[in-house]
Amino acid sequence: MTAEPLAAEHAAARRQGLSVGLATGVYGVSFGALGVAAGLDTWQTVALSLLLFTGGSQFAFVGIMASGGSPITAVATSTLLGIRNGLYGLQLARVLRLRGWRRLAAAQVTIDESTAVALAQDEPEVQATGFWAAGLGVYAFWNLSTLVGAIAGNAMGDPRAWGLDAAAAAAFVALIWPRLRDRTGRITAGLAAAIALISFAPMPAGVPVLLAAIAAIVVGLVTAGPSRARDIEQPEGDLL
């Protein structure tokens, strides 16, 4: 395979990564403002974005501190929400194949957005481009806007009024979309969605998304048996 025919795909993956970075960057302003409002100082708020760098965990951490919860609960919930990043890493490790400091850097930017942009691409090398574009793009904009929000407060008001929460959900639909072309992807996503929906009310934050992984296990076990010929035709990695 030459690089030429994939040049357009690489460029599209980079654009997609940058768009996702810009969009989440706007949310960073509200995180920065919420962090300071929760009683953290500017540096603690900034440290969460630089070091923890996973939005769900960060919002949970400051939300629990703001509502007077114990720091132990805040750390535990944040960690529970972060476990899915490790599950993304299982597959990303095989796509990126990195060692040393590059692997450390990849782990730090392994989040929902970078995984989703990688997932939206077809070729493994384009998946890597999408992963880095989204990972580094989100890292840059998220940290910059966290700093702005922590210092200046939330000048833009409630992000919900701008429809930004819906924009985030719509972005994930668009990024999952290419994987819904084949039946295995559709069934996995449908089952995962059903599990998350049923378990949402009774389970603590972060658990429904982890339970959705059961869909991958069930579909993986069922399809690994009979569709042997397809597996040989489609080697690992094609489904990211």
Partner: peptide
């Protein structure tokens, strides 16, 4: 082969779960 398929399907399963929690 099985583990490889399961791990390959993990991102789409987790992101579909995430999408539900973000939407409703």
């Amino acid at each position: 082969r099985r583990r490889s398929r399961i791990i390959g399907l993990l991102p789409v399963a987790l992101l579909a779960g995430l999408l539900v929690t973000q939407t409703v």
